[in-house]
Amino acid sequence: MAAVAEARPQSRRFRDLLEDRRFLAPALIGPAALFIVLLVGAPLVLAIYLSMTDATAGQLTGKFVWFHNFVDAWHNDNFRRALRNTIVFTLASQAIVLVGAGILAHALVRPFRGRWFLRLLILLPWAAPVAVSTIGFLWIFDSQFSVVNWTLVHDLMPGGGHFYLYRPVNWVLGGIDHLPWVHVGKIQPLNPPQWLGQPTLAMLAIIFVQAWRILPFATVIFIAGLASIPTEVHDAAKVDGATGLRKFWHVTLPLQLPIATVALLFGIVFTATDMTVVYILTSGGPFNSTHMLTTWAYQTGIVSSNLGEGAAISLYLLPVLLVVTVLMLRFARRVEVS
């Protein structure tokens, strides 16, 4: 009995503590923060330490060499190319995603018959585990049995109607060839393009697959952004006589900017830090021409078992992403306020 009587005030004191913001706020964040500190923060610190040592595979210590690994990595041609590739890969794929998702979201935000089914088709790339769906592209771009090449070089008109898709494509490519800064060959029907075996085409294939994979999710975020524009805004625009492109330019686009920025931010971070598509499609080949910073770090750190330098290569990415993120978050907030 005495124990119960004694326990009561104590439990009340605990309950009072739970009502106090100064205690409750950190107590509720604490577990999540601890989890992140232990599983992201600590490994990150260890990785930064590793990047300054000459550690090799199998051990997580080594001689301290300061910034030697960073300098070494920088002077490697493959690193420079990987850095350039990462920037091109990220910007190009996200440009496709931004335009595609913008158009798609506008068309999908209104209900129409068959929308559910079309939306299902569009969501498929997001639902498929990316590692296995990329294997699907390995088959689509196969050196011998590529369905893309088959469609390009075979007579598509039944009964020998002689319609070859590569002819109009070559006509377009010929037009592009007149531009001063791009030189693309033409498709030769007897020697069809090796999508994953030739550096430029392999880069294009990687960019396409990444855009294909991110587009559905970006579209969903864009739809969310469009749906959050209050109907009064549309009504007001109608009263003011804003329609079509003018309405898009002066009303819809500014209201979409914050959400588009966040979608783009996610896209950039996912694309720059994830190596799955590149690793499965080309593993950095042919001749190390399609390495990104992630795959080059993996190649150096794991395959060539030069842990320190591998960590250093990965770390080059961090400040760049940090600047991009801070700028974009600030931009999103400022647009929102104004």
Binding site: V40, A42, L50, V269, A272, D274, T294, G310, S314, L318
Partner: peptide
């Protein structure tokens, strides 16, 4: 914002120390 920034750390950087853990 700090919590969001943990997103920027690529898994290729973390998996070495993490595999040790």
């Amino acid at each position: 914002v700090g919590i969001f920034l943990t997103y920027l750390v690529p898994p290729t950087l973390l998996f070495l120390p993490l595999s040790r853990v």
